[in-house]
Write a protein that binds this DNA or RNA. Structure first.
Lengths: 252, 252
DNA sequence: GCGATCAGCGGCACG
DNA sequence: CGTGCCGTTGATCGC
């Protein structure tokens, strides 16, 4: 078990030489910045990355209990009974600070990590929109794609298209259950474009599911919902089908 | 430097006895579940918590590059040249899997962490709403609080109040710059309550800032904006002032 | 359990 | 830089 002094040396040396530092020990944590927080004594895992990322993890839960992003400056101060680590982020607007007071350190190590790889993700909303863009007939015959990721004043339209009657069709794609937020988003776009272009405009929400409230609001706003079935395959995703679910409900 | 076999033993033993396991080494990562991802060879930090949380960190950035939440089952398999860790989450709906293939392990340790403390946060939106609730006169003379966190069909109203003319006042509080989403949210509540209660209803957005687009939409919808100045102090937050910013803009 | 929302959201991409 | 929005969002709270 390293002494506090040894732990301090590990952290200092790691930060100086661009290494990852990993500490485990008993500590208190205090944060002050955009909000403030206190965490009383307990055993935690501390990770300090070469880019300044500073993470305090408890022994449960995914999210770090306290954290600081890249660009943080870490300083160490040794006392008789405490090792105090201070992570300070002094960006133009936001001033933030974490203070970790270690009373005992069970492990302190540092590592030079070599890693140039970047994560590749499949099945993002953008990818689904790209696929759908090329298969608009799944929604409706004669639907013609105009533009993907079309920037309007109040956001970004996933897919802009035109139907057989030359009406504008705004399509919002969601990769998971669509809620009220998805509907308000779509409604905003339809509102903006129907005014600006002075042209009949339809709005279509495509998602694997929709919450009952969202569907109600959708119908109330005169918008449409299509159930989007997709499968994640390895180098890419694949659209399995697209079904208008609204009429079925209205049949009752 | 531990052998792959020793690393396997550490992970197995940690998982069996409710310890935190920390591995550092050269590996590939593959994920498949709600989405899919691939990460080619490189040095990474792996954290496995007793509750099943599984985190793969690169040497930069705050977020784990691959992860799995609490409840994940971890299994290990040793090969001549590889140590394969599989984290599988088989919850009712979502089936997810991460596979980490280690080629070399630089460090493998485990720790029994004792920690019963819970984080206390100051300056949350809820806290600001509580404070504001007790000082509604800051917004306007004669404003009377009716209810905090009032549940309506389409969400939760931060503060419900009544003005001197007996109009309903719906107040939405934001702890940071309010955008379009905050306005649509408020608009939804106002819409719902003005219909349900058949009563004149006002909507007020209180936030430290508001984006230009959001302010425009707010005015267009007949809603009001108050600039909320607050300070985070240690055991709590404090409201410093509240100013109607709309009229000033309209003066131009 | 689902639904809606908050979060010190983080991160990205476009203006 | 701000604005908007996606995210394997996660975490929380109310129904």
């Amino acid at each position: 078990m390293p002494s506090l002094k040894e732990a301090k040396r590990v952290v200092d040396e790691a930060f100086d030489s661009g290494k990852l530092a990993v500490l485990v020990g008993r500590c208190k944590v205090a944060y002050e910045g955009r909000a403030a927080s206190k965490l009383s004594e307990g055993d935690r895992l501390l990770v300090i990355k070469p880019d300044g990322t500073f993470l305090v993890h408890q022994n449960k839960g995914m999210a770090a209990i306290n954290y600081q992003g890249p660009g943080t400056a870490v300083s160490t101060k040794l006392d008789d009974t405490e090792l105090v680590l201070t992570a300070e982020n002094t960006r133009p607007k936001i001033k933030e600070k974490i203070e970790v007071r270690f009373y005992e350190v069970y492990s302190a190590e540092s590592f030079a990590l070599k890693d140039d790889s970047e994560l590749k993700v499949f099945g993002s909303e953008r990818e689904l929109a790209e696929l759908l863009m090329q298969d608009l007939h799944l929604i409706e015959k004669g639907l013609v794609p105009l533009k993907q990721e079309s920037e309007v004043r109040r956001g970004t339209i996933d897919i802009l298209a035109e139907d057989l009657r030359k009406r504008l069709v705004i399509i919002e794609v969601k990769r998971r259950t669509a809620g009220l937020d998805a509907v308000t988003q779509l409604a905003r776009y339809v509102d903006e474009l129907s005014k600006r272009k002075d042209r009949q405009t339809r709005g279509i929400l495509c998602a694997p599911e929709v919450t009952p409230n969202a569907l109600k609001m959708l119908e109330h706003e005169g918008l449409e919902f299509f159930k989007l079935d997709y499968k994640i395959e390895n180098p890419s995703a694949k659209i399995m089908g697209l079904q208008k679910k609204q009429k079925m409900l209205q049949e009752f």
